[in-house]
């Protein structure tokens, strides 16, 4: 029992890293643009399917394939922002963004169902079903690789946001769109690129998701509800919060699955959100807004 709990914690941290990456994209989009991207779930699945197609039809290793899928999703993100999000009026952007991205989501779901059918698939590679034996624990290679990749990309994202001029303008837009515009930042361009980046990270997350789970297009519902729970728990717009709560939630879920039952693990996941929010309505690191409406 003791060993399996420790193993569950390690697994939770490793998968939590991947979820952190996907959630960071969602929270970035929210922070900069004040919109909720419901399509984030289907973008993850789209990323998974792209990696799957590349590895099945072209024999490209999923990790190598990221060089294609990440730019592809970046461009799709730019297109969605330019085509739909930017056309929303200021007043009710948030509510309308939920509807627009949901519409985008069901269109992609339909296209994916037509292209790949609704049968579950999984990405295969030599490391998918292997595991290493370290200090008495069995750790799946794919989890380790996924965690490493997520860590690299998160560091890259951090460097982009905190070490570049572009990052400074993103953070300015994150704090206050109007003020950012006043000091000469092209907020529209920053928004478009941020949306692209926020979507692009799902390609990497999706690849790991597709290698560790059998998936089809409707897996997106489960994904988006988890990702939303993670970013809300961390505090909308807070990157650090997203990281922490992703790891916290996934560890909690894995431990509950071992200690109690896998059936209730998901319920505990959402119950944790409810409990935390009743104590801290803005999440772990959310900015308390004086006048929220």
């Amino acid at each position: 029992m003791g060993t399996s709990i420790v193993e569950a914690i390690i697994d939770g941290i490793l998968t939590g890293g991947v979820y952190a990456l996907m959630a960071a994209g969602l929270t970035l989009i929210f922070g900069v643009m004040d919109i909720i991207n419901i399509a984030q779930g289907i973008f993850v699945v789209l990323g998974a399917y792209l990696s799957y197609a590349l590895s099945v039809h072209a024999g490209i290793d999923p990790f190598l394939g990221l060089l294609i899928t990440i730019p592809a999703l970046f461009v799709i993100g730019l297109g969605v922002e330019w085509g739909f999000i930017r056309r929303l009026r200021e007043g009710d952007r948030t509510a309308m963004s939920i509807l627009v991205t949901y519409a985008v989501s069901i269109i992609i779901e339909g296209v994916l169902n037509m292209t790949f059918s609704v049968n579950y698939v999984q990405i295969h590679a030599w490391y998918v079903n292997r595991s290493v034996h370290i200090l008495g624990f069995y750790l799946a290679d794919i989890y380790l690789f996924g965690f490493a990749m997520a860590a690299v990309l998160l560091v890259a994202l951090y460097a982009l946001l905190y070490r570049t001029r572009f990052g400074a303008s993103v953070r300015a837009a994150l704090q206050d769109r109007t003020a950012a515009r006043l000091v000469g930042i092209d907020v529209r361009r920053v928004s478009t690129v941020s949306f692209g980046i926020g979507v692009a990270v799902t390609a990497a997350g999706g690849m790991i998701f597709g290698a560790t789970n059998a998936f089809n297009a409707s897996s997106s519902y489960d994904l988006i509800s988890r990702l939303l729970a993670i970013v809300i728990l961390g505090g909308l717009g807070s990157m650090g919060g997203a990281l922490l709560s992703a790891v916290f939630m996934l560890v909690l879920e894995d431990v509950v699955a071992v200690v109690w039952s896998p059936i209730w693990a998901t319920a505990v996941f959402f119950a944790a959100l409810v409990v935390v929010l009743s104590v801290r309505p803005a999440g772990f690191f959310g900015r308390q807004v004086a006048r929220a409406q």
Binding site: I36, L228, L236, T266, A267, F270, L273, V274, S278
Partner: peptide
């Protein structure tokens, strides 16, 4: 209803999933 705006939207989704899981289990 303790929360507002975006958080409210998401928490309604969360409660929904908890209830669905209860119905399952």
């Amino acid at each position: 209803l303790r929360t507002r705006r975006h958080t409210f939207v998401v928490i309604t989704i969360a409660v929904f999933f908890v209830v669905q899981l209860l119905a399952f289990n």
